[in-house]
Design a protein around this nucleic acid. Structure first.
Lengths: 350, 350
DNA sequence: CCGGCTTGCCGGAACGTTCCGGCAAGGCTT
DNA sequence: AAGCCTTGCCGGAACGTTCCGGCAAGCCGG
């Protein structure tokens, strides 16, 4: 295996000063005149170490540039120090997922954990269980073949939104109240005078989409104002929303509000409206189920539900850490808040 | 440390059957009636093992559900089996980066490598060098405080686009010919009749943006057609592009083509044009430096340069792997291709 | 001044793997 | 038939950590 030695040599080349051998606990111990156990204890704050010794050891370690070897640490402590993150392969709401991922990374970092990106295609190359201590599975779709494998990989899993398929193991979940947020959206356009609202949403292959559909139905029943619905793809583009809106308005010209679910697609609703001679915010109210650059940057700006994705990511990591540490049961469900951002597209102020 | 035992217990609970202790090489060896060395060799395909023994061992390992412990493997072989991925914290071109990340993950998986997402904020919690074998630093910006730390973390680094700041170590790079692609874009609008093109681009804090500026200048000089330039933010929204375009057209009504750099912002150019009574594709050509959902889904669809981000991610990983394996020198620079996608916004066909 | 308790430190044994050296057994050449 | 090489397998030593048991030394009450 000449490759391997090559790889190692290459790595060595890059390791700072040429003569730099990786400095271990033992090196620090010798330099500080104590045993490796003491060094370990001093650095970890574990065991019983005299304050003077502790400071001395830490000083020596810093001077030598000691860097703990995470592989050894992981082996010994039976923890990988990493969590997996799975995002929908059909990753629409890109803005959203990206922010969520960064939020998760930030929070994980605070816990000293790495976040490894799991391949959307599934097909894990190795034993997932020995590579991560736990996993985040965000917006698991029933159609996603990778999800079941992830769920019984043998490590605790926290899902962002519930998984609608059969969950083999007890898992934690962080859920958004999608019913409440869509209700708020519909109430809002209703307050602004809309009487025939419509919903553009993906098929109910995710908990999010499913909640949207039932909520629309319930709201329609409660208000005796049936909500027209049109199915778009999970990763709908603005163009797709545009076409859907055109179809919707052609079928029922009385529609006076369009709520668009997929992130980034809502501007298409604006375009369709304008093309048909409507004025968004006046004779056609437009809103989006998920806030993002597209809704904030359009003109008029589009009313949307802000799920604060970065926070969402943080909360997911937090729950996973709590489960890992045994601070809470594995079936814990936590809620994540949202806010309604009302803007010109439903207020008519331009 | 009661937490830790809690964590372990929790992990055990999830490990399939209740009595399931993690099965090691030794367990397989005993079950197969051979030594652990033989098991290791049989499974890895290393050393000398009789085919019959090899098959037998593999069969036993599979039956017992043996899963190699990656921490042990990493410790022993001095490789972490993971690469880091750093994306610009000001992550515009989200669509782009997301696709790139997924491409990288897919390719890394083929090599048996994990991809760990590096915190944009820097502030690594541990020794980077012992957590990853190498790193991908995508579109490093000079303003990003995290980048220098990453570059001399002691592991090989491949950058996506060059780093303009002082690079402490020799690193590999995968670069796009931004000069050529912008030239192609300008040539294209020139061919379509534009004589006063303008460029909306971020300040030159990244190699990409810097290339855009110098290319615009060169092209203008070569064609005796100065390119009007307007600076927008790296993470420009459609609204920002809209305002910039309005300002640009107000200052110089003769402008007949606008090339917008940041991903997702180009639709704003369309809006500004329409608002000013222009017809995109006819009396104002519009193009984007980076293709994505926004350019494809707008109407009219926007001509753009497609960098095939998923491929880009793959190529970066490939180069990093080659460097790690010593198959190529550390200073290797590879080029990544692009294609010009001409669409209605410059063709006038609608 | 002695038994017990606390404090501070240390050795050594894991953790599960890879890999090197070695050693029989058997086949080949001479 | 004696030497040698190859094949197939094995034992053991790392890799760098954490953590448990233990052991001196100091301090106390009695």
């Amino acid at each position: 295996m000449p490759e391997r030695s090559g790889a190692i040599r290459c790595q060595r080349i890059h390791c700072g000063p040429v003569n730099a051998r990786t400095v271990t606990l033992l090196d620090v111990a010798q330099a500080a005149g104590v045993s490796k156990s003491t060094v370990s204890d001093a650095l970890q704050g574990s065991g019983r170490v005299a304050p003077a010794t502790r400071d001395h050891v830490r000083e020596v370690a810093a001077r030598l540039g000691y860097r703990p070897n995470s592989a050894a640490r992981r082996l010994r402590s039976a923890r990988t120090g990493a969590i997996g993150l799975h995002l929908p392969q059909t990753a629409t709401r890109l803005d959203y997922y990206m922010k969520l991922a960064f939020g998760a990374v930030a929070r994980a970092q605070e816990e000293g954990l790495d976040v490894v990106l799991l391949a959307p295609a599934g097909g894990t190359h190795g034993p997932l269980a020995s590579r991560v201590d736990g996993m985040l599975v965000i917006d698991p779709e029933t159609g996603d073949a990778a999800v079941p494998a992830l769920l019984d990989a043998g490590v605790p899993v926290v899902t962002g939104e519930r998984y609608l398929g059969p969950a083999p193991d007890p898992v934690g979940a962080v859920v958004c109240d999608n019913a409440a947020s869509l209700t708020a959206l519909l109430d809002h356009v209703h307050d602004r005078g809309a009487r025939r609202p419509a919903l553009l949403a993906p098929a109910d292959t995710s908990a999010w989409a499913a909640a949207l559909h039932t909520t629309a139905e319930n709201w329609g029943r409660d208000h005796a104002l049936p909500v027209a619905r049109h199915t778009v793809s999970f990763a709908a583009t603005a163009r797709e929303a545009e076409e859907a809106t055109a179809a919707l308005l052609a079928a029922d010209p009385d529609i006076d509000a369009v709520v668009c679910a997929p992130d980034g697609a809502a501007p298409g609703v604006l375009r369709a409206a304008t093309a048909l001679g409507r004025t968004p915010g006046r004779d056609l109210l437009v809103a989006s189920c998920v806030d993002g650059a597209a809704t904030r940057g359009s003109s008029p700006a589009i009313t949307a539900v802000d799920f604060r994705p970065a926070d969402y990511g943080r909360v997911c990591v937090e729950l996973l850490c709590d489960i890992l540490a045994g601070r809470t049961g594995p079936e814990t469900v936590r809620r994540h808040g949202w806010t309604l951002e009302t803007r010109a597209s439903t207020l008519g102020t331009d």
